[in-house]
Each structure stands twice: as structure tokens, then as C-alpha cells.
């Protein structure tokens, strides 16, 4: 294993993590809800009374974040190396997978591990492992490097 010191951003990543933790804390303490993005979006696709407003507000807040961030600092570059057809397949896999698996990086990875949920710990292990295998296959085996 070789560490990529050039791209390693310990302080901003730790700071970003603290903000994410603060956001998840706010949502559970004020609203009594889990800050799981796939679940919040999923609930918007299956409208039930009393479940729309807060979900919509949360997503709106996320969508406003780049504009607010841009007022104080330059937005980090976003590089997407995947081809269009790969992005479509990836989106479908993430959409179906997070609903079947009942969570994603936020719901299982942050909130679930924080409350020591056995399901979330297993789910996080599964999606980390499968993500690592996928990157290994696409970047080292199939690309021939």
C-alpha cells in the first residue's frame, strides 16, 4: 500500500467530517430522524402525509450548500473519470442497492456506525469491500495497468 501524500487532505477532510457529524446530530436531536440521504430521497418517491416537508427541506439545504460555500472559498474541483454509460449503470446500482440495503454512506456509514447498529456495521463493510473490488477491477485489471 502506497499513500498518496500529494492528494491527502487530513485537515479539510476531518473538518468536513465534523460538519457532517454536526448535521446528523442536528437532525436526530431536533427532528428525531436519521440523516441518511438515500432514505430521505427514497421517502420523497413514496409520498406519505407528514413525510414530505422535512425531506424536501433537507434536500434543498444540500442543494444550497455549494452556493453558500462559494461565497467564502473556492469550490473544490470535481473530476469525473467515468464514461457516460458507466455513470448510468453506477446510478442505477446506487439507486436500487441503497433502497434494498436500506441505506448508504450517510445512513449506514455515519449514523448507523455512530449508534453501533449491527446491520449498519455489516452494510458498511459490504459496500466498502464491493467499492474496493470494483475500483481494483476497473483501475488495475480491466485497464491493464
Amino acid at each position: 500500500m502506497t499513500i498518496d501524500w500529494q492528494h491527502f487532505t487530513p485537515w479539510s477532510s476531518l473538518g468536513g467530517g465534523l460538519l457532517i457529524g454536526l448535521a446528523a446530530s442536528m437532525l436526530v436531536l431536533f427532528n428525531g430522524r436519521i440523516a441518511g440521504i438515500s432514505g430521505i430521497i427514497g421517502g420523497l418517491l413514496k409520498p406519505q402525509a407528514g413525510e414530505i416537508g422535512w425531506r424536501f427541506a433537507f434536500v434543498l439545504g444540500m442543494l444550497l450548500a455549494p452556493a453558500l460555500y462559494g461565497l467564502f472559498a473556492q469550490l473544490p474541483t470535481v473530476e469525473v473519470a467515468a464514461l457516460h454509460w458507466q455513470i448510468v449503470i453506477a446510478g442505477l446500482l446506487v439507486g436500487v442497492g441503497t433502497r434494498f440495503g436500506a441505506g448508504c454512506t450517510s445512513g449506514h456509514g455515519v449514523c448507523g456506525i455512530s449508534r453501533l447498529s449491527p446491520r449498519s456495521i455489516v452494510a458498511t463493510g459490504c459496500f466498502m469491500a464491493s467499492g474496493i473490488v470494483t475500483v481494483y477491477l476497473t483501475h488495475h485489471v480491466l485497464s491493464g495497468s
Partner: peptide, 15 residues
């Protein structure tokens, strides 16, 4: 839970 999470991880790693 396990199948869904494996699928999600594959999509996450792909894009």
C-alpha cells in the same frame, strides 16, 4: 441488506 449494500458499493466504486 447484504445484497443491496454490495450493489451500492459496486456503483459507488464505478463512478
Amino acid at each position: 441488506l447484504i445484497g443491496g449494500s454490495l450493489m451500492f458499493g459496486a456503483g459507488w466504486g464505478l463512478a
